Simulated assay, not measured.
Amino acid sequence: MIQWKQARFERITEQVENTLPDLMAEIERTVASISSIAASKAQVSPDRLWKELFEPWAKRTANRVEAEMDNEIEALVSALSEKGTRQDALRVALPALAGAGVLAASLVAIPTVVSLATVTTTSFIIFTTAAISWPMLALGGAGIALATLTGSRAVDQLSERNRRHLIVRLQGRARIAALGHGLALGERCFVTDLQAITLRSLEAELRAA
């Protein structure tokens, strides 16, 4: 059971890492396509744009994880059941579930009976709020408005700088939200939520009689 958990967790991390470049590229494309004023507003208040970028990617990635998870859990439960009742299998599984360590926050937040579809529209909201601090910028829409007094070239330069800065900030936030880079040990991120859902799904399947 522990070996299965470790292998499954490694696979989830690998799947998130493999799809993260898609989110990074989408951030670049989106920021390049929005207006200068919209980019400046996003510098000051990025949550709406961040949510529009992160949530679709998270749902697509979760669907891929779920497709593999369902098959693996079915096979594992079947193998465990051959050695005894499901209740016996659950007693074997519980120590592995309880020994999740850094998954504690995710396990507490995610109920035993849960689907990935539910979590992607509720629990992932933690990554679209002020959970990750964003300092206010003195230079934003007002800076661009002021620059118009000095000529269009200055406006263009400021707009381009704002876009580059916004891309860097959003991509940094993506690494934090997806993989937990920079978070304290045990804080939730996308990977730990997916790992916790896997354990909860296995637990629910074993409890079903």
Rank of each mutant, 00 (worst) to 15 (best):
V92L: 07
V168S: 04
I73C: 08
E17T: 08
R188L: 11
W134A: 01
L116D: 05
A42M: 10
R48S: 11
G140T: 12
A109Y: 11
S159H: 02
A67C: 01
L20I: 14
E160H: 10
A178M: 08
P56I: 00
Q171F: 00
G141I: 13
S35K: 13
E17M: 15
V155S: 06
A196I: 10
S45T: 09
I37D: 13
S133C: 02
I34M: 06
V65T: 09
L103E: 11
L107V: 08
K5G: 02
I34G: 00
A79H: 12
L158M: 10
G141N: 13
L49N: 01
R86Q: 11
N63D: 15
M136Y: 13
D47W: 12
A39W: 05
V31M: 04
L49T: 00
V155Y: 11
W4S: 08
T198D: 14
S201M: 06
V16I: 08
V119M: 14
G180P: 02
T122L: 13
T112G: 14
Q195F: 04
S81L: 07
A104C: 09
S40Y: 10
G84M: 12
E74W: 01
S36Q: 10
L76M: 12
I125H: 12
W57Y: 15
L20M: 13
R169F: 01
V16N: 05
L202C: 12
G151V: 12
P111E: 04
R86G: 03
T85V: 02
K41D: 06
R161A: 04
P135S: 02
P95M: 07
S106E: 12
D193I: 05
A204T: 01
T30D: 00
A196E: 02
A178C: 14
L116G: 10
Q6W: 13
K5C: 15
L94Y: 06
S152F: 14
K41M: 09
T61H: 03
R161Y: 09
A147F: 02
N162D: 12
I110R: 06
T118G: 14
S133Y: 10
I197Y: 05
A154W: 06
V77W: 01
A117W: 05
P46K: 08
T150F: 15
G180E: 07
L107W: 07
N162Y: 04
W57K: 02
A174S: 15
L158E: 06
I126L: 03
A105C: 10
W4R: 14
G84T: 13
